[in-house]
């Protein structure tokens, strides 16, 4: 086998595997992308029912209520819109009223967001960047520490 043929074979192998991967990726993206929305997006009826998405905002003060068993309900707000959320399971350690939160799930017909995942963070001063950014876009005053959380450490 000549050098040229060999190189052709190698390139062919590489291109072949890459194109298989590309097809897989396109297919996977179509199925597994989850969009991120804020409560005001929900209020503007931008989201179809039954579509999985991530809802991010602040846990509204005084809305966390425990129900039967491990059922928990709370509201997520960006101060403009508010969406009630229900969740079955154990909330992350750092889940607190007034804190930023990201919940993943489906919007029910009654406008209730049924979450199957509530995201936790490791760090108290950390706010998920989407939440911080989305809230900022909505003109919500977050205070310095939410945007530059690192700096609060030296305060």
């Amino acid at each position: 086998m000549t050098r040229k043929q060999r190189r052709g074979l190698l390139i062919g192998l590489g291109v072949g595997v890459l194109s298989i991967a590309a097809v897989l990726m396109m297919f996977a993206f179509r199925q597994s992308i989850v969009f991120f929305h804020t409560p005001s997006d929900v209020a503007e009826h931008k989201i179809a029912q039954g579509v999985r998405f991530r809802l991010g905002g602040l846990v509204k003060e005084g809305t966390v209520a425990r129900g039967e068993g491990t059922r928990v309900s709370f509201s997520v707000t960006d101060t403009i819109g508010t969406v009630p959320v229900s969740y079955e399971g154990i909330l992350p350690d750092l889940f607190r009223e007034g804190q930023g939160v990201v919940a993943e799930g489906i919007l029910g017909p009654d406008g209730n967001f049924v979450a199957d995942t509530v995201l936790a963070k490791h760090d108290e001063t950390y706010m998920p960047p989407e939440v911080a950014k989305a809230l900022k876009e909505k003109g919500v005053e977050l205070g310095k520490s939410a945007e530059h959380p690192g700096e609060t450490q030296t305060q």
């Binding site: 991967a21 996977a28 993206f29 199925q31 597994s32 992308i33 991120f36 991530r54």
Partner: peptide
């Protein structure tokens, strides 16, 4: 400007078969 997240299903469908 759309905010999305790519979760485990994507990686299970692409990386794992490879």
């Amino acid at each position: 400007g759309a905010k999305i997240s790519v979760g485990a299903p994507y990686f299970n469908m692409t990386f794992v078969p490879l």
